[in-house]
Nucleic acid binder design. Structure first.
Length: 164
DNA sequence: CGACTTTGACCGGCGC
DNA sequence: GCGCCGGTCAAAGTCG
């Protein structure tokens, strides 16, 4: 890898992939570390998806994500946390290897929208925590290069104990 | 009966 | 000033 980043190499000839890749560009910074020769699944040589592995990933949040779900299938975790200055909300992006996008992270989500984004051939799904008073939102999108991977972006902190 | 999902339309913000 | 994209809300329908 020298100049052909999967992102650049995969960049559509269309115009409008510079500003739209804002978060993707950030993500790519994290994702790229696995695109070339760095796979997080260090020992995925025999990782059967069946085992319920909750995508529990508490970056540094105040234990907001006290998840303890029951898993939704395969889950290879890899994410990036970013604190929004000026806002106490937290944005956390994950890339999870899963056949399903409905990963049970210990919370219940209600889909409130679906949108086709230009950066991805796949639609983006918008979920919201069903718990009253919980401002947490979740954005789920399939990876462009690996449809088997799901990019989940959490926004906000849960104001209620997890585990339903 | 209740809860959740799905589709479409509308609005706002940003960029050119 | 106009156009484009993203994001959210609302209503209806379906399933458990």
């Amino acid at each position: 890898m020298s100049d052909k980043n999967p992102k650049a190499a995969d960049s559509p000839p269309d115009s409008g992939n510079s500003a739209t890749n804002q978060w993707f560009d950030e993500l790519s910074d994290y994702l790229k570390l696995n695109d070339d020769d760095h796979q997080w699944p260090p020992d995925d040589d025999s990782i059967p998806p069946p085992p319920p592995q909750p995508p529990l990933f508490v970056p540094n949040a105040a234990g907001d994500f006290g998840a303890s779900g029951s898993g939704g299938g395969t889950t290879h975790l890899h994410g990036s946390s970013e604190e929004i200055s000026g806002s106490h909300q937290k944005r956390v992006a994950f890339r999870t290897k899963s056949e399903v996008e409905i990963l049970d992270d210990g919370f219940r989500w209600r889909k409130y929208g679906k949108k086709m984004v230009k950066n991805s051939p796949n639609p983006r799904n918008y979920y919201r925590c069903t718990v009253d008073g919980c401002p947490v939102k979740k954005r789920v999108e399939r990876d462009r290069d690996d449809p088997t991977y799901v990019i989940t972006t959490y926004e906000g902190n849960h104001t209620h104990p997890g585990s339903y």
